[in-house]
Amino acid sequence: MTDLAPTPSQTAGPYLHLGLLWDDGPDVVAEGTPGAIVISGRVHDGSGAPVTDALVETWQADPDGRFAHPDDPRGPSACPGFRGWGRCATTADGGYAIRTLKPGALPTPEGATEAPHVNVSVFARGLLDRVVTRIYFADEDNAADPVLATVDADRRDTLIARPVDGGYRFDVCLQGAGETVFFDV
């Protein structure tokens, strides 16, 4: 038997656009769904330059705090057409947009409540693995969220989406001053 060296790490891009996209990717719900919102923003690097070949992926609960998954202990989402999962490539200006429903609060195994949030993964060139963050909403009570409470108070703002016409704005800064908080999962 021959000893083989491990395969070296590779960055995530630039092949994201070849195999990871599909037409309905940015639509967690169909256009015209009652209560639909759009979460949009830009992905940029530490110097503020747009990341034009990133992929933003989301996973979330529905407005009742249920996931579109048969293993949700409260039962799967009852929202017609709600997938819970979206995927959007960034544009030439680093922009992305996901059409979805605003999520509800979630119970934790310890009996606490997590504020409404969207789980986000970002894949991009130069990254050896995805980076993971969360989107919280400025117009929700986030004070008791147990995950957000673990983040330094002066950095929590990087996880808050702000209301804009028809939805929310959430920019992702991959490094440097104002870097979005990323979680080690």
Rank of each mutant, 00 (worst) to 15 (best):
G111W: 10
G84P: 01
R87V: 02
T108R: 15
P116N: 05
E114V: 06
L101C: 05
P76Q: 10
A112C: 05
G81C: 03
A115D: 06
Y96M: 00
A112M: 06
G84H: 00
A105N: 08
C79E: 11
A105T: 04
G104A: 05
R130W: 08
G95F: 02
A124V: 12
A97L: 03
V131A: 13
T91D: 15
T113G: 07
N119L: 10
H117D: 10
T108V: 09
G111A: 13
T108I: 11
P73T: 01
D93K: 05
W85E: 14
F123W: 15
R99P: 00
A92Q: 06
R130Q: 10
G75F: 06
F82V: 02
A105G: 04
W85Y: 14
A105Q: 07
D72P: 02
G111D: 14
N119V: 11
A78D: 13
R130T: 03
E110D: 15
T113E: 15
L106S: 09
G86M: 08
A97G: 09
G94N: 03
K102S: 10
L127W: 07
V132R: 10
A124S: 12
I98G: 10
D129S: 15
G81F: 05
P80Y: 04
L127N: 09
G75Y: 10
I98L: 13
T91W: 05
G111Q: 14
W85K: 14
G84V: 00
R130I: 04
R99V: 03
V120T: 07
W85T: 12
G126W: 12
V118N: 11
